[in-house]
């Protein structure tokens, strides 16, 4: 019987819920409090909780540090990519503006382009923030062995 059985079972139940809540915060950011930054932190916390309960090796197997490194850069590239896309997609005669989301969609009456732009940009923020938080945690926690039993 492994130690901390109750902790393991409860956190196994909780971690998917934490991730789902993070996604809710991400995609509901237009309507309620929250957004990419908060959602990124919440999703990173879910993985960190997994690492605390099941050990660093298990967490590294679930979310490899390589993925985290690429993710941190990918988020910035998504954000910058939206900016470049708005530059390229702007119609003729209109002034070219970096991150002018209205260029993303022709429906100016309902500002659909704004909604697309905000969603994409928040996705970039989510990717970078969750990866960065995990990268910092891996960098710290990779230097010490797993928490010994008497520390619990």
């Amino acid at each position: 019987m492994s130690p901390h059985l109750i902790l393991r079972v409860i956190s196994k139940l909780l971690i998917p819920l934490i991730v789902v809540f993070g996604l809710y915060v991400q995609f509901h950011g237009d309507f309620g409090p929250g957004g990419g930054f908060q959602a990124g932190v919440i999703i990173a916390v879910a993985v960190i909780l997994y690492a605390l309960i099941f050990g660093m090796d298990e967490a590294r197997r679930a979310v490899p540090p390589t993925v985290v490194r690429y993710g941190a850069a990918a988020g910035v590239l998504i954000y910058a990519g939206v900016g470049i896309a708005t530059l390229l997609m702007n119609g003729a005669g209109e002034p070219l503006n970096f991150l002018d989301y209205d260029a993303l969609h022709p429906d100016q009456g309902h500002h659909t382009g704004q909604h697309y732009g905000i969603l994409l940009v928040e996705l970039g923020v989510l990717t970078t923030v969750s990866s960065v938080m995990l990268a910092i945690f891996y960098a710290f926690a990779g230097r010490v062995p797993d928490i010994p039993d008497e520390e619990w």
Partner: peptide, 20 residues
């Protein structure tokens, strides 16, 4: 977002990439 990315870059360069 770039600042957050740079923070991770700094920590990883100082503490190592924590990959093992």
């Amino acid at each position: 977002t770039v600042v957050v990315f740079t923070a991770a870059l700094g920590v990883m360069l100082l503490l190592g990439f924590g990959s093992g």
